[in-house]
Amino acid sequence: MTKCRIRFEKTGRAKYISHLDLMRTFQHAFIRSGIKIKHTEGFNPHPYISMALPLQLGCESVCEVLDIQIEDDMSQRTLPEKLNPWLPEGIRAISAALPINKVGLLKYVRCSVTMVYDDGKAAERKAAIEELFARESLIIMKKTKRGMGELDLAPNVSEVSVEVISDTELKVTALVSAVEPTVNPSNLLDAVKQNAPELEPDFAKYMRLEVYDGNMKPFM
């Protein structure tokens, strides 16, 4: 058994594949590829796949992390080229290596929200959005396991930058807490909606850009 951590992207139409369906998609893809991976024990054994941080439905990512154990003696480095032909459009392994740290050490996520304004006046809102994310406290109401709860984004969101992409698009990029508390890219939009409704865009697109450990090293 060889431990293996794969970094993969999930972009385009594939962003609508749910977390559970993505697990199944990988299971089928591994079987197609002929790469033998460890199966779960029990009555219905199936390929064992572990994903670090489930991605929200509709969010794209270029930094997903997947752990498996390979039965055959093969180098992790060649895994992406062996697996990629068997994956659906939009899902692509970028690299694979021996994991150097535990999944639990994943701490921060850099992500972006692209806000679309159909009136073509995206640039005019830049300053106000910057001001919003610079506030000392930025409370949002968020669904938790125990119903609705409050979360202050200010201590959990940093390195915010706001970029004018086009007349209609503003892109907010930020470093957010990945766990305890979990801040999703969509929470950045919640902050806008709930604290500055006049800035609410007509549509928003989300993307995960990088994942880091506690020392801000890209998570490998």
């Binding site: 385009g12 139409r13 594939a14 609508y16 594949i17 749910s18 369906d21 998609t25 089928h28 893809a29 197609r32 439905l57 509709g58 068997w86 994956l87 659906p88 459009e89 939009g90 549509f203 697109k205």
Partner: peptide, 24 residues
């Protein structure tokens, strides 16, 4: 996608409406 993308977040199981599966 410009138009479809805007409605997909509002519906159940959007993967049914995108295509792009393996083998298409």
């Amino acid at each position: 996608e410009q138009r479809i993308e805007r409605i997909l977040p509002k519906v159940q199981k959007p993967a049914r409406y995108t295509g792009g599966e393996y083998g298409e």
